[in-house]
């Protein structure tokens, strides 16, 4: 089967009556191959295979769904009896780490667009297998006004520096519902310079 056929027939998953319902083809078996040394002696064997995990976002689903709609959703502890009540979390936390009450979902899109600052950064040409981001990858760790944590993201326009102002962009066309549906660009980047499918 060609790579093209594999992609066309690749399986999908729905949830029906509270259970995962996979349909289509998930596994494309390939033969094992022997591993030999220079003298031709058998030392081992390759074990190629495809595996698909079905992963629940649970209470974080609203965060990943919102990215494709151009929204950045954080969460806040509103338990008046909690010693850290009012704390806003980005990364999104379903529950407060102190009182374990369920947090309130809050929209911080405007806050992020107005005042997001690089706390630290790094640049790498090297990636692990299955990376989808363009290289060099530039991590930026982002401080938001009034948020008690520091989000990691990828900067795709501009050169990072500590204290730099950045703004989020969202993959509103064909979102993939993963964290890279939100990327970051230097403040002042024109809309015409954004990666395909992304918008402010």
């Amino acid at each position: 089967m060609s790579d093209c056929d594999c992609q066309k027939d690749r399986g999908t998953v729905k949830v029906v009556n509270g259970r995962y319902k996979p349909s289509g083809k998930f596994h494309f078996p390939q033969p094992n191959t022997p591993i030999r040394n220079e003298q031709g002696v058998l030392l081992g064997i390759t074990n190629p295979r495809d595996i698909v995990h079905m992963h629940s976002y649970g209470g974080e689903a609203i965060f990943f769904e919102s990215l494709g709609k151009g929204k950045l959703m954080a969460s806040r502890c509103d338990n008046a009896d909690c010693e850290t009540t009012g704390s806003i979390y980005m990364p999104f936390r379903i529950h407060c780490p102190d009182c374990l009450f369920k947090n309130t979902v809050v929209d911080i899109t405007d806050r992020a667009k107005a005042n997001s600052i690089v706390h630290s950064f790094m640049i790498t040409e090297r990636t692990g297998a299955f990376n989808t981001l363009p290289t060099p990858i530039k991590f930026v760790n982002i401080e938001f006004d009034g948020v008690c944590t520091i989000l990691m993201g990828a900067l795709v326009r501009g050169e990072p520096s500590i204290g730099m102002k950045v703004v989020p962009i969202f993959k509103t066309q064909n979102p993939e519902y993963i964290i890279t549906d939100m990327l970051w660009v230097a403040d002042g980047t024109p809309a015409t310079d954004l990666p395909e499918g992304y918008s402010f």
Binding site: Y57, H119, S120, F121, M122, R126, G128, N131, M152, I179
Partner: peptide, 20 residues
Amino acid sequence: DWETPMGHIYTGYYAVMAQK
């Protein structure tokens, strides 16, 4: 969900600490 998709490269997480 939040970190691995960004490059699949663990060294990067130390590099931001090194930078700071």
